[in-house]
Amino acid sequence: MSFNLAGVSVVHRNGAVALEDISLRAGRGERIALIGPSGAGKTTLLRLLAASLKPTRGQLELLDTPAWSIDARALRSLRARIGMVHQSSAIPPRQRVVTAVLAGRLGRWPRWKGLVSWLYPLDPAGAQRELARLDLGERLFDRCDSLSGGQLQRVALARVLYQQPELILADEPVSALDPTLAELITRLLNEEATRRGVGLVASLHAVDLALRYFPRVVGVRAGRIAFDCAAGQVSEAMLAGLYGPVPGAAGENPEADRSATPVGTAVPLMCR
């Protein structure tokens, strides 16, 4: 199983409820798109799946491991098995492409190997292999600040592929890219996940990409799951309910959003 969330809630320290009673599970190799308005809790959900945020309540299992009842060492090796495609800002501009990609295995390598490879790349062939798959093989020894935005996003993707994770997460991986590149990156993500048979969860603002490339689409709104459907079952009405105004609440105030009518009532169909 990729992950299993049962009754998970996340309450921030200031009392704001980011996620409320989320139950979601995915089998190995399932590819899921998270869609929903900004501030709905998509990023929080992904951080839960990356084992970088501890839920306030509820059960959380990642790759058949209860993430928060294991010791720090085991948590690190669990994190090494989960890959997160970040926005390109997570790659230092002055780093060489090869180093940025090799950093993907820092969680698996012993510390000495990481430090040696920092000074002198130990596995350029491995980095080259992943980059070549993304049409970036010839930029191996260039500095990242000489790349374009789309190329940098592919470096971030190559890092995750080199990490060889068993679950790939992506937090709005294409929101900074033009439509053509966004589609390319989305397609590459899905192809690689399929080829390796690993799970994929990506949050997207582009609903058309989510429906076209991902078999399963989960709508998140105001900290709850609004719907969880196969891509073909998602209807216009469900999307309108997902992105439309919350009845009786000012959109600016998250507190008011939470206290409003539960979103489920506005959405006509729950697939699961």
Binding site: R81, A103, G104, L106
Partner: peptide, 13 residues
């Protein structure tokens, strides 16, 4: 840190 790197490696990279 999210992909499991230790504090020293994460600092260097």
């Amino acid at each position: 840190r999210e992909l499991g790197a230790g504090p020293v490696s994460a600092f260097c990279y």
